[in-house]
Amino acid sequence: MEAIWDGLVEAFRLIGTGDGELFSIAGRSLLVSGSATALAMLVGVPLGYLLGRARFPARTLILAAVGTGMGMPPVVAGLVIWLLLVRSGPFGGFELIYTKQAMIIAQFLIATPLVIAFTAASIQALPARLPDLLAVLGAGKLRTLWLLAREARLGLLAAVMAGFGAVVSEVGASMAVGGNLVGDTRVLTTAIVTETSRADTERAIAYGLVLLAMAFAIVAVLTVVQQRSPR
């Protein structure tokens, strides 16, 4: 119990004094997971919209595949990307393995199914007549997409939260394709694993607290946006 208490005190000291290593790792986590989530939104929202609106033969099969992807263990995503990017792999020539870019790609693979599924569900939940209404009122294609996105904002922001939440907290993929290199690819989750194995509980707790605070701050901002009713 005393160890935990000492750990918490030290953790707050590290945070309070602006420990350089702590904040550089936190910044890297934010950069990698934020980029992966942004890319997942870029690809996942249009795909989710199509799956939510269009009717084509393989649609149900694709939705089932996306659903399966939502439950993919991060370490498996990491393994797939590792096999593709490792020097002897098909994309080894790009020399991306053990870089932040490799971590972003792996986290993108984890977040995208979540974004697709949340988007498809939120688009399907809209009244079926809404696109027709906007068409007869004279809204162009882009205006229609914007207005539909605004209507589906609860689901779309839930997609961002789910995607970001999943990747900022994963450790398996980051470890596999990033390598946990000090000052380069070490992020909060891999750092927690390292410090715990070194029995440096103060740092592990500090990293854990920062990770939680970061996730909370981002989700809180998104929730405020989500719950604000449009005029």
Partner: peptide, 27 residues
Amino acid sequence: SVAYAFQEAVFLSGTLRANLDLALRLR
């Protein structure tokens, strides 16, 4: 040239005023 009232009244979120205004704004 067309105004169309569907059988089921469909609205966007927001007040009725905002909905009526949007229709006129889109014209």
